[in-house]
């Protein structure tokens, strides 16, 4: 009787495996999109404290998503022209715009309140933040950029009064990604660079990959992995050992721009 039960349960388990492996185009992929995801530095959407925040050209919108099937625009804050990117950091939102870096606070509720604008010359690029330091790239070569190609390292300990620590000359900087010890900066068609930021006020370039075009990137800090998007496609790197960062895979883009 016991062995019969055993056979039954094995059959049952086996049939379960069969059922789950017999889906159509998307096999056994339900419920895998739970939790919150992560975008790159050029994202215009981000989640923070249960709300969705969106930038669009001139404004910053708060979307109440507490009722999943009925999201609502809770508020629209007019920021200024040329707002392009949004980055969440603690209770704050950092916006990249063509005129500078805006900092907004969510400490007084879900509608962002203005803290400061760190101005720079006309340029079009994003910002990332770690350990009270913001890294902002500015690039020329577009209609909107009159300034030089560089990265600004900005102390944002006082969020109402950011101060420039240093600038680093770049070739054509685009998106970037940061964790506690490393900073990755895309140089567009010219590749990407890795900086050691153990001394967070003084990034030191430790590697330059000039053959991997990089417009934006996401660092998965837990897995020590970097995902890069650029005109040749998607490249994934492992940086567990920063002395030997290696490429894990490539997804080829068939239309190189």
């Amino acid at each position: 009787m016991k062995s019969l039960y055993k056979i039954f349960s094995i059959c049952f388990l086996f049939s379960l495996v069969l059922i789950t492996s017999c889906g159509e185009s998307f096999d056994d992929i339900s419920d895998d999109f739970g939790g919150e995801g992560k975008g790159g530095s050029t994202a215009r959407f981000t989640f923070l404290k249960g709300y969705l925040y969106i930038v669009d050209e001139t404004s910053l919108k708060t979307i109440d998503i507490s009722q999943p099937d009925n999201p609502q625009v809770l508020s629209t804050v007019n920021v200024g022209p040329g707002i392009e990117t949004i980055f969440p950091y603690e209770n704050f939102l950092f916006l990249g715009s063509q005129t500078g870096m805006y900092i907004y606070s969510l400490e007084n509720g879900p509608t962002p309140t203005y803290l400061s604008l760190f101005e720079h010359s006309y340029a079009c690029d994003p910002v990332v933040v770690a350990n009270n330091i913001a890294y902002v790239t500015l690039r020329s070569g577009t209609a909107c950029a009159t300034g030089p190609d560089r990265m600004e390292v900005v102390d944002v300990t006082n969020l109402s009064n950011p101060s420039l620590i240093t600038t680093i000359e770049m070739i054509n900087p685009h998106g970037l990604a940061v964790n506690d010890t490393l900073l990755f900066v895309g140089e567009g068609e010219f590749g990407f660079k890795v900086f050691n930021i153990k001394n967070r006020r003084d990034p030191v370039e430790i590697a330059y990959y000039d053959s991997i075009p990089a417009n934006d990137m996401i660092s998965i800090n837990g897995r020590r992995e970097l995902i890069i998007t650029g005109e040749k496609g998607i490249f994934q790197y492992n940086y567990a050992d920063i002395d030997s960062i290696y490429q894990m895979s490539q997804i080829v883009a068939t239309n190189e721009n």
């Binding site: 895998d32 999109f33 739970g34 939790g35 919150e36 995801g37 992560k38 975008g39 790159g40 050029t42 994202a43 934006d216 990137m217 996401i218 998965i220 995902i227 998007t229 650029g230 005109e231 496609g233 998607i234 997804i251 080829v252 883009a253 068939t254 239309n255 721009n257």
Partner: peptide, 14 residues
């Protein structure tokens, strides 16, 4: 993938 645009990571998905 023809032109790789923005990327997003959610769980094990890219």
């Amino acid at each position: 993938v023809e032109n790789a645009g923005k990327i997003y990571v959610i769980g094990d998905y890219l």
